[in-house]
């Protein structure tokens, strides 16, 4: 049966629980090229939501709008009860939103621990002089950040590489460090842009486990872009499908698997399902 396109959402007032994320009639174009066209959907708290679609469908643009890196031409973004015409990137972390990037976005020159601790930058209050002099407040703040970073390193099995410069690590490990940096602030909403691109099968399986744990143990709502349909079907509660900047389907994995529109636009015939695209 075809997946039902969700009605334009009126997010917070809709149910008892406000959405972790909702976008409402988002449109975005670059020059004459439409990246997003009238997109509306909502993600419930605690959900793992995948966004799939062919290359150039507007998935990354969508994430960039939600994290404030792009300003939409029209529409609104709802984050934890606040509504924005343009999300203020500088306040993103304070709003409880973290993200990773499609291409690695680590601080190559910093150690793994410092990369992860940097994920708590928005909580630091001590001024630079207090840090240089080493006032107690600054020292405490820093120790707390490091302790939290160490927790995340343990959580994602990164203890061994704690002091290594992030740039020297293998690709899959760097991806995990980036996930740790995004999780260290215990975000309410975690946006993952192709977290598994370029990973081996084992790495993908591990990372799927970590993503699920981020939801189950750390309580994050997760929105991820992913090309590996096998992974997506196994991991997500709901899937939104974009094609040419439009939302063509939004439903459970089963809905999506059987949606003729999605099969036409993206999935292709059934035997491609298992292989996925991203391999």
């Amino acid at each position: 049966m075809p997946a039902v396109l969700s009605e334009p959402v009126v997010p917070p007032a809709n149910g008892n629980v406000p959405s972790a994320l909702a976008v409402e009639a988002l449109s975005l174009s670059f020059g004459g090229v439409t990246a997003l066209s009238d997109i509306s959907f909502a993600v419930a708290p605690g959900e793992i939501r995948a966004v799939i679609g062919p290359n150039g469908a507007g998935k990354s643009s969508l994430l960039n709008v939600v994290s404030g890196l792009y300003r939409p031409d029209s529409g609104r973004v709802w984050l934890g009860g606040h509504s924005f015409a343009a999300v203020p990137t500088d306040r993103l972390a304070t709003l409880g939103v973290s993200r990773t990037f499609q291409n690695l976005a680590l601080f190559k020159g910093l150690s793994v621990l410092d990369n992860v601790a940097a994920g708590l930058s928005h909580r630091l209050r001590a001024g630079v002089l207090a840090q240089v002099i080493g006032l107690p407040a600054a020292r405490r703040e820093r120790a707390e950040a490091q302790a939290k970073a160490e927790e995340l390193l343990a959580f994602l099995h990164l203890d061994d590489v704690r002091d290594r410069p992030a740039g020297t690590l293998p690709y899959g490990t760097q991806k995990r460090v980036e996930l740790a940096r995004a999780l260290v602030s215990r975000p309410r909403l975690l946006l993952l842009d192709e977290p598994m691109a370029g990973m081996t099968l084992t790495e993908k399986r591990d990372l799927s486990g970590h993503i699920r744990a981020a939801r189950d143990d750390l309580g994050a709502t997760i929105v991820l872009i992913e090309h590996d349909i096998g992974v997506v079907m196994g991991l997500s509660d709901r899937i939104a499908v974009l094609d040419y900047g439009r939302l063509i389907a939004d439903g459970t994995p089963d809905d999506i698997r059987n949606d003729p529109v999605v099969i036409d636009a993206y999935l292709g015939v059934a035997h491609d399902l298992e292989a996925g695209e991203g391999i």
């Binding site: 972390a93 993200r99 601080f107 020159g109 930058s121 001590a126």
Partner: peptide, 22 residues
């Protein structure tokens, strides 16, 4: 110090630095 780390973060990936609240 954390501020020194922020300098390097800025150098290595300005967008990521902004997103995490530096």
């Amino acid at each position: 110090s954390p501020t020194g780390r922020a300098l390097v973060a800025l150098r290595d990936h300005e967008t990521a630095a902004r997103v995490i609240g530096i």
